[in-house]
């Protein structure tokens, strides 16, 4: 009974959270297909471990962490695959031209996509998903000071790419 209750409660919460989970996963993976695959993996893991979640804990933080770990697994597996099969392709997307940056201010999404991953994830958790610093640091398994420094650098880089907002 208790198990069924918590599982049913969790499913309901997950349905409500799903849009945010997908949004976070898209910011994390920068690819909508990867994002939904990772969310699916994370949902499977969460449902199989529903007993580990207590309803007084934040389900969003717990899920963000599971999503991030699922993504790390994917990246590691691909890294092995890429080393074996596509050694020359790595790095093609790395580095951005300063000419391009000067030519045109970027959309918010394009600017986010260019942030270093650790900054992008910190910005995504705190500024987009609205987690307190402490929760975001827990999701990433880093000290809060590391989180705030990534967040500050991410913000600075975004401001530089975006420029002041032009009122429409």
């Amino acid at each position: 009974m208790t198990t069924n209750d918590s599982s049913a409660e969790m499913r309901a919460e997950l349905v409500a959270l799903l849009p945010r989970l997908r949004r976070f996963a898209r910011n994390l993976t920068r690819n909508p297909h990867d994002a939904d695959d990772v969310v699916q993996t994370a949902l499977e893991r969460a449902l199989s471990r529903s007993s580990q979640w207590h309803s007084d804990a934040r389900l969003d933080s717990w899920m963000f962490k599971i999503i991030r770990n699922a993504w790390i697994d994917v990246v590691r597996a691909r890294g092995r695959h890429d080393r074996l099969f596509a050694p020359e392709e790595a790095g093609a997307a790395v580095g951005e031209s300063s000419i391009e940056r000067e030519a045109d201010l970027l959309s918010v999404q394009a600017a986010m996509a260019r942030l270093a991953e650790e900054q992008r994830v910190a910005v995504s958790l705190v500024l987009i998903e609205g987690l307190p610093y402490k929760e975001a640091a827990d999701v990433l398994d880093i000290p809060i000071g590391t989180l705030t420094s990534r967040l500050a650098r991410g913000r600075e880089a975004l401001q530089a790419m975006l420029g002041p907002e032009v009122e429409a």
Partner: peptide, 30 residues
């Protein structure tokens, strides 16, 4: 302002329809 700008830029994503396979996972009886 940057925070608000980010939130505005990403608010629309919450409206995109989750794929059926994800909804099914959560709707199916445990």
């Amino acid at each position: 302002n940057l925070r608000e700008r980010l939130q505005r830029a990403y608010a629309g994503e919450l409206k995109s329809e989750p794929p059926q396979r994800l909804l099914d996972m959560l709707a199916a009886p445990s």
